[in-house]
Structure formats: structure tokens, C-alpha cells
Design a protein around this nucleic acid. Sequence first.
DNA 1: GTCTATACCTCGATAGAC
DNA 2: GTCTATCGAGGTATAGAC
Lengths: 268, 268
Amino acid sequence: MGINERKTREKQALRDRILEAARRIVIREGFAALSMRKIADAIEYSPATLYLYFASRDEIARALCAQGYAQLLAGFEPLAQIADPAERLKALARAYVAFGVAHPQTYRLIFMEDPTYLGAALGGASEAEKASAGAANERANKPAGDPAAPQAAPQADAQLINPAASDDSSDAAMRLMVGALDELKAAGRLPASANGAVWAEALWATMHGIVALNLTCPVFPTSPLDTVIDAALDAWFGVREQPAAAPPAAARSTRARRPAAKPKAVDA
Amino acid sequence: MGINERKTREKQALRDRILEAARRIVIREGFAALSMRKIADAIEYSPATLYLYFASRDEIARALCAQGYAQLLAGFEPLAQIADPAERLKALARAYVAFGVAHPQTYRLIFMEDPTYLGAALGGASEAEKASAGAANERANKPAGDPAAPQAAPQADAQLINPAASDDSSDAAMRLMVGALDELKAAGRLPASANGAVWAEALWATMHGIVALNLTCPVFPTSPLDTVIDAALDAWFGVREQPAAAPPAAARSTRARRPAAKPKAVDA
DNA sequence: GTCTATACCTCGATAGAC
DNA sequence: GTCTATCGAGGTATAGAC
């Protein structure tokens, strides 16, 4: 079977070249500028050839999305070692924002374009129902043409598209947050009424909001980005002391005001 | 001059019809599906006619953006009357999220598409520099074709495009938030180190994150949206008591758990 | 002066020759 | 497997009829 294996390898190699070229285009010009013709030009093949490796431009987008998402999650793993739950959460939050700032176009593709892209990178089974179960006439980001768009058949080789990032890692990241929040609550540093899962989603939304506004809103932020991040983290965990004693608010402003080292977009 | 005035009125009327048709398309099918041909079909004119009233599709987008933004800001004004600063901030935050949920496509257009759209609705003068001053190769949402796209000449009748929403109201909304945060700080309900302007941006980011994830991320939220909003607001202001006395955390979970009345998307 | 009709471009996707 | 040729839909811009 050595011949078949070689052919499989070669097919995979061209597939990777396609994705690589697509990623470079997205990084340089944004996802909206990604076209099959540009990819074909970059790898010196005809546009039609791409359709032997990917069913559509959307499938390429889903693959890029899954890769980027895996990269984001991979950055979280070492942070699980941090002992103090509040510091662990802050490190996670800062890593999240840093990723968004460093890879703006990739972040956009993952979290700010078509919901089905990330949906495919996650469960795979659940995105279809979720996408159609929402509001009746809404959430449709680019239905454009016909109502029954080519939505099927991207499931065959999901494991191939999606090397390491599937639901498991995603859940792991969520568990990391929920666990830290529960530790904080157990230590009395969060209100007893707090629900870890809900607070985790709210904290995620906060960090997403900082990244997304930074990418899209021309007047955000007025203050340095790190200052805004620190303010949000202070609002969440910064100023609460051990359960009893200690002044209820005020004081404890001795935060390590990091020297505003603009990470600058690098992407890739 | 009555003849000229009539002509001006008629021109304005068709202009409004164009915008109205465009808004309906955006609401129903999303901004990505908005095309000059569709608008022309809807108002029963030829596509070329549109270019006599708007220089480009982008200019129509900017006008829609400005209208939607004005509507969002208008919803804030009555909330300025709320006496308690924390309740005022919570009401503002809930109104903000409610707008995003009720008008998802409009919200997308304002805050999640091209930064220059909102930029034009705000200062007008500042968006060009800001858009190009960012990262070198980034932030470009849809440069697509040629490098020197038609970016000029949308300034002539900005006041006509932008009936009520310009920088003034926008600043007013920001001042509303900053003022409330400063009141809270003065009352000792915020850390003394907190900066009102910075915290306002961070709080804005939090609400934007809730709306944006809700619109784009297939797995958000797991819990009901109102629960997530309440969690975020509790994290920010909910659990802090009057400066002294009272248990530092815990207790005070008697929030008016609103009955999860899904506002459902209506847009327009 | 206004608008219609049309030329010319790019795009995604496919059929069929090789 | 790969490419050429092509379809249909989208966009901008303009020549020229009314």
C-alpha cells in the first residue's frame, strides 16, 4: 500500500499549501479579500484545482478558523499552572486579548464573521441546529443567494481539517475558567450567588468586547489598551480582599502597571 | 426660489426611499447581501440612478450606520434621569444590549463591519487618520481591489446624512457613563484608583462583547442571555455595599431575576 | 439635467477536454 | 489530476437617449 500512502501524502501536501496561501492572504488583506483565484495564483494552480481539495471557499474558511482557534487555545494550557485563581484568570484574559491584538484578521475570522465557521470547528453536529434555531429571520450572515446553500458534506474529514482543536480543548478552556471562578467563590472572593459557568461566559464576553471594539471601533480605546484591560480585570477581581477584615473598597491600587508594551499585530 | 426648493425636496425624497429600501434589505438579509442592484430593484429604478444620490455602496452603508447609531443613542437619554448611579449604569448597559439583540443586523453594521462606517458617523474628520494610523497592514476590512479606493467626497452633506447623531450625542453618552462612574467612586463604591473614562470604556467593551458574541458565536451563551448580563453587572457593581460595614462579599443575591423575556429580533 | 442601457471588471463554481 | 472555457451574479462607471 506504499503507493496509496504516497498519494495521500501528496494530496495532503497540496492541501496544506492551499491553506498556507489562504492564511497569508487573510493575514495581509483580510478575509473579505480572500478569493479562490488569488489562492490559485499564489500556489500556481488553476482555480478549478482548488475544488478538488476543498468544496468551497467557505470550507477553506472553516479550516483556517479551526487552525486559528487551536492556536488560541494552545496558548492557554501553560497558564493552568498558575496557583492563585484570580491571577490565573487574569493571565487567561490577558492572553486572550493579546492573541486578538497580535492576530487581528485571524481573530476576526474566528469570532466576527460567519458563525458557522467557528461552529464547524467546535462540535460540528451542533452548529446546524443552533444556526437555524436562533431568530427566525436573523443571524443569517451571508445567506445571499438561494435558501438551501451548500451546507452539507463538510463533515467527512473533520478530524483532518481540525487537527487538535475540537470540542475537547474548547471545553477544557471553559473548565479552566469555571474552575478558577469556583475556587474564588469558595474562598469568599466572589459573591456566593455567583455561578461559575455564567460568570465565565460573562468574563469571556468582556475580553471579546475589548478585542472586538479595538479591531472595529475607530474611537476605542481612548486610553491605552492595557489600561482598559486592567480596569476590566480590577472591576472583576482586582479590588476584592480576603473575606473579612480589610477596607471594603479603596486602597490596593498597587497593580503592576505594565509598561504598555504594544504587542503590535504580527498575525500568523 | 420655490422651484429649487421643490427640486431639493424631491431629491431628498428619493434619497430617503433609497435608504429605506437599503435598510430593509440589511435587516432581512444582512449587510453582506446589500447590493446596488437589489436596492434599485426594490425602488424600481435602474442601478445607475443610485449613483446620483450616493457616491457608492459604502456611502449608503455610512448613512445607514449613522441612522442606527442615532437610534441607539436616543434610547439612552431618558435613562439619565435615574437617580442612583449604579442603577443608571445598569439601565444603560441593559438598554445597550437590548438594542443589539433587537436590531442584530443594524448593530453588526455599526460596530462589527468596516470601522470607517462608524468613523464617518462620528467625527468625520478623525476617521481617516485613525484608520490609517493603526497597524501598518491591518485593520483593513475590505480593501479588496485597488489600493486607492473611492474614499473621498463623502463629506459634502454630512449634516444631511447624519441628522442628529454626530459627535455631540456620542460624547453625551460617554459623559453619562463617566459621570455615573465618578459618582460611584465619590461614594466609595468603586476603588479610589479607578479612572472614570477608562472604566467607562471597559464597561462599554463588556456590553459590546455580550452583544457581539451573542450575534456571532454559535456556543454563546449557554445560559440565558439575561443571566449573563446580570452576572457581568454584578461583577461590576452588584455586590458592593455602602462604603463601610456590611459583609464585603456574599449575600445580596436578591436581584430582580427578570423573567427571561426574550426580546426577540425585530430590527428596524 | 435625469435616467437608461450597457461596457467592463472580479468573483464562485462547474463542465468537459486532456 | 489538472486545466481551459464558461456561466451567472455582483460591482463601478459612462455614453448617450430623453
